[in-house]
Design a protein around this nucleic acid. Structure first.
Lengths: 230, 230
DNA sequence: GAGTGGTCTAGACCACTCA
DNA sequence: GAGTGGTCTAGACCACTCC
């Protein structure tokens, strides 16, 4: 029976929820019962239920059973592409410029975010990413040299730190922050906009096995949109 | 063997990737070989591999095999809480105010985004969410009455449309957009800031079984941060 | 203690895709 | 055509949690 694919089971369950056959907060039948009803193995029903639970539509508890979520704290995913890919996906030509590179004790603000002692030497990079010649993203990055010692020998003149890091230091854990900020005079000049303009800012902290790797602040000119689907 | 849990297998694979035992772009052994190596069933190895692939660390293709991602299009998740929960999680008192409510043909901009004919009647709501008395979010929402007919009978004077919808019309699919925008005079007044200030804007489109449900634009005053972990 | 979900196994067949 | 991942089954044991 192709009826018994976990996708079909999932969408049938979705239908029941959508049409209030299964109401919010209500207990739905156990895995065994559903398996019998759908003529499938319990593992198959389990996969359908787990996926619905992972996306927040259902809530499951051992012994208590499975319920339609009352306050669906839904989750969505967004992808973290490389700037280059992001630009090229728009059909634009990508270009990269290194603005500054320095090793030394970093500002307290940077070490604090990474959870490192104040005098830890960090590699500080400022870069500009362009799409069809227009400023696309200003990147302000600190790299923890203890975590990625090879970075000290790399000039980053030709390759962006993001692309470079990606192949050398995968991360296991990260924290993202998104917000809007008014452009400082320097940012305005770099991004080709007016001081005070509304910029979209993304900050990222990454760790590799609990050791901080890098902190980066990525600033986009007005009009930039971050889109994601669920 | 408790060694053979998919979690252990996953973290061992992560270790191999982190320590470059498996290098970016390299082909890793097939499921059968890994299953033999770990002393587990293929299904267990498969689960570990699938989870790593879903988070973007691995790339899998039938026949071609599994590789360590060269350009890790990593994914991160963020939760979609109710405004009330968001505010209360900060320890602030939540308050809600309905600013306007109207049924009628919506502006082209709204129907177009939802993929509906131009003259479709939509319910238009404007609301303000407050944290400790200060403006926290301005909500500008259109609801497709054909998808959620009961919404026509609800005043939304006491309960926010988000909270109301959540229990009545779960969604199966959604699209999110985030960007920064300069405050219009009206937004500035509502959010207690200056015109032109950098606002953080989130837009959300939701569908239930391919039928558009609602379009909402949520605007936050300067300083608002959206944080998420991976 | 008993019921429910969480996970694992061993085996099987299928679907896709590369050569 | 053949190799690899994708999925399903049937059965089993375990872990958590409610009563």
């Amino acid at each position: 029976m192709s009826r018994s694919s976990f996708r079909n089971i999932k969408s049938e369950m979705l239908r029941r929820i959508a049409e209030q056959e299964w109401r919010p907060g209500a207990l739905i039948p156990g895995e065994e019962a559903l398996a019998a009803e759908f003529g499938a193995a319990r593992a198959t029903v389990n996969r359908a239920l787990q996926e619905l639970a992972r996306s927040g539509i259902l809530e499951r508890k051992r012994k208590a059973g499975t319920r339609v979520a009352l306050h669906p704290v839904r989750e969505a995913r967004f992808s973290i592409p490389l700037v280059r890919q992001e630009v090229e996906a728009c059909g634009a030509a990508y270009a990269y410029r290194l603005l500054s590179r320095a090793v030394g004790p970093a500002p307290e603000q940077a070490t604090e975010k990474l959870g490192l002692p104040e005098d830890t030497p960090l590699l500080h990079l400022e870069c500009l990413h362009l799409a069809d010649g227009a400023p696309y993203q200003f990147e302000d990055r600190y790299i923890h040299l203890e975590a990625v010692p090879e970075a000290a020998d790399e000039s980053f003149a030709e390759i962006g730190p993001n692309e470079w890091l990606v192949n050398r230091a995968p991360f296991s854990h990260a924290e993202f922050t998104f917000f809007a900020a008014a452009a400082s005079p320097r940012e305005a000049e770099l991004l080709g906009t007016a001081p005070g303009a509304a910029l979209f800012v993304a900050e990222r902290l990454t760790w590799l096995l609990d050791k901080p790797v890098t902190h980066v602040r990525m600033t986009h000119p007005p009009g930039h949109r971050m889109v994601t689907m669920l």
